[in-house]
Design a protein around this nucleic acid. Structure first.
Lengths: 206, 206
DNA sequence: CAACTAAGGTACGTTACGTACCTTAAATCG
DNA sequence: CGATTTAAGGTACGTAACGTACCTTAGTTG
């Protein structure tokens, strides 16, 4: 920010307005969020870093959580869906991507935001959408391919079934208290639970 | 607390010491926690309610989180393991117990504490232990009975398999943003995922 | 140009965590 | 029993940060 042309310099008297200022604030929030996480994100620090003051921030975002969420959304990326040509490979690859994501600083930030957003379902839904592995759609795609290849039973094409692997992985995080799991665990989830579940289907109760 | 004999009354000059005071503080913390949750639990209010001051509280618990956890532990109860004589009934009954627990004020408190405890694995482990449905042991017991009765395949006797139902239920909470799920969901989890998983076991990859 | 708007600057009320320090009742020790 | 020690009771306060209020001023619009 030393020589940023948009900066309000002591002598320059040039005020950023509208989108330019909003962008500067967002960038500052992103930087603070990635450096220190959500808990340490303060309106004061973001404003200072953006070279403005809290008024400008509050004029755009009603509160700290909203700003945190906006900053997070700047950071999130979409993950490419793996296509290895076989079910086990696809699922393992996608699980590994997810594992990497959740063990990254980004994962911790997301968890903090989810916790702070505690009671707001729509907000939660929007946050979930940012973590690509949470939705059923990509998993259904992977499973759909497997069904087409004859690797899985057609009855297994159900969102809750399709997402079992990722759900189990996230449960591992809870149990372990850390947002990462060793690769053997991923392999075990796939081989001991997921594959048996989708390949042969016993009769369900009537 | 109107006529509690242990109370330091204005004229009585009788100070509670040691365990008696600790108990009074804990009781106050429990009351505050159940009435207002962890976020609204303050050291000031607990101390006032216990008829003491923050020094006494801080002499026993290093910080607010520790006090919150101690109070929570006073509250937690053990749930009886259902035994309906058949697998589906057992699993459904235990899931229903869990659903009721997590949708109770106690569940919200636990979630708050887990979130506040964010980076401390041992602490987390201890908290988890308080929520009886999280551990694998009861689920393995239920599944073990089913295996003995011939209702489930012996290879399914694995902690990760046994806990699939409860893990899926908790994922429902995350997806919904509320700590409760309709009974049809519980039934679906059991019938669509859990029972097919444990009854017939396809070959796992070598 | 005047009016309006948003940016920049400053101040402040409120809340609560946690710490420090003092007085005093109660327990312990010689 | 008196002296010493310890913990309880009481009070004060530094700090941090959220969010609000208000004022000045640069920039835009009609």
């Amino acid at each position: 920010m030393a020589d940023d042309p948009g900066t309000r310099s002591g002598t320059g008297q040039t005020r950023r307005r509208g989108a330019a200022l909003e962008e500067a604030i967002l960038r500052a929030a992103v930087d603070e969020l990635t450096e220190s996480g959500y808990a340490a994100l303060t309106m004061e620090k973001v404003a200072a870093r953006a070279g403005t003051n809290k008024n400008a921030v509050y004029r755009r975002w009603p509160n700290r959580l909203a700003l945190g969420i906006a900053a997070y959304r700047q950071l999130s990326t979409t993950v490419p869906l793996p296509d290895t040509g076989e079910l086990r490979g696809d699922v393992l690859a996608f699980l590994r991507l997810a594992n990497r994501h959740w063990s990254s600083p980004l994962g911790a930030i997301l968890r903090e935001l989810l916790s702070a957003a505690g009671g707001a379902p729509e907000l939660l839904a929007r946050m979930q959408g940012q973590s690509g592995d949470a939705a059923a759609a990509p998993w259904l795609t992977i499973l759909g391919r497997a069904v087409a290849r004859g690797e899985a039973a057609p009855e297994a094409l159900h969102p809750r079934v399709a997402t079992v692997a990722i759900v189990l992985l996230r449960n591992e995080y809870v149990v372990r208290g850390v947002p990462t799991a060793p690769d053997e665990v991923l392999v075990e989830i796939v081989d001991e639970v997921f594959l048996p579940l989708v390949r042969r289907r016993g009769p369900s109760s009537g």
